[in-house]
Design a protein around this nucleic acid. Sequence first.
DNA 1: CGCCATTGACTGACTTGTCAATCAGATTAT
DNA 2: ATAATCTGATTGACAAGTCAGTCAATGGCG
Lengths: 214, 214
Amino acid sequence: MPPEPATVLAEANRSPRTQSREVRRQQLIEATISTLAARGFARTTLTEVAKTAGISHGLVLFHFETKEKLLTETLTFMTEEYHQNWQAALAAAPADPAAQLLALIKADFASAITTPARLGAWCAFWGEAQSRPIYQEACGEKDAAYIRQLEVICEELVRQGGYGVDAIIAARILRVVIEGTWLDMMTMQNPYAPTEALRTVMSTAALCFPKHFR
Amino acid sequence: MPPEPATVLAEANRSPRTQSREVRRQQLIEATISTLAARGFARTTLTEVAKTAGISHGLVLFHFETKEKLLTETLTFMTEEYHQNWQAALAAAPADPAAQLLALIKADFASAITTPARLGAWCAFWGEAQSRPIYQEACGEKDAAYIRQLEVICEELVRQGGYGVDAIIAARILRVVIEGTWLDMMTMQNPYAPTEALRTVMSTAALCFPKHFR
DNA sequence: CGCCATTGACTGACTTGTCAATCAGATTAT
DNA sequence: ATAATCTGATTGACAAGTCAGTCAATGGCG
């Protein structure tokens, strides 16, 4: 039977000498994220990941057969985490489309999602995904769900406000502004603060739907 | 004395058996761009670049001492090319800020700049730049110049139209929409056409400066 | 005792970088 | 003109190092 959350937590606090399967795997995925952020995709080695996790590199392959599987599962985990994050935020928001859009945007800048390690790892995967269909497949479907959701909300906003904007275009603009400010936070030499990024996105929302946002 | 352009061109059409220094270096930089796009940063090897150029791998190191130098010079070349492109477009445009913004946007989607190989190579560098300060330095200053130029144009547009938008924010929104549509063209499974990307950016301009764009 | 996590030495493949030998083409000498 | 010479591009074999993946031995825990 699968270990319950309480058991997993207890094991996580135990001596790291031996760990249960699930705890060790999760720990290795986190170590992979950190390594990707710190060293980039090209210089991410199993030895480096193992050192970050404080174990031998042989153990990494014991739990994840190949390096490729470790990376794929790490990407799958991050995709799932991101997906859960915005879906939970959406579920908690009122049925009002303006509130839903706000919730969606805020979720994308939640501190749990935008840690330096997470941002760096996303950047590393983006760089490689272009030439590796496997990585595109891993997060393509989840991305599509996000886009569709954003479009639905924008359509409703356009209907409510009687705006002249194409809802599909507005949704795309909002999405790329979110992605773009993410990129800025990752790649600029002296990046602006997350609050400044959020302000930029909210300004875009105000431009698209002036009656709903200010 | 340095070879004249006519001489360089003549040599480019010659049998590839032996080439002058400059022609070979340029050819290798193009081969590096293609390889980065096709295989990603992590799997770009000197052997692969050499194979693409149709020469032995020893010759790559004869012209570029180390792999690192080949990569930095490739990035420098692409940065310079991009910089020249938008500066030339700006110089050819009328003094009117609306015309200048249009020229700047169109320049970013010029076919010479947005070839699949160029886009893929940019993506590969972006992915690694996060963890390698050297790459950030290579293009950081040129990026800053572009941002400053965009801000100047936006400030003038705001002044002319008496818009309520912050020019700095508007410039940032436009820039990230441009970057974001670039990313879309690179990473989406079924990306939209460059004309659709251009339409998205122009819609953003219309949202920011409705009196100037439609 | 038995089971599984864990280690660390080892292998084979691959990659960067070196270097001596070769070759093409231009220059000079005969 | 033709041969000899020189220069610099080009090659391919090789050295050195790195890394993913294997595996036999070890160790902790029920």
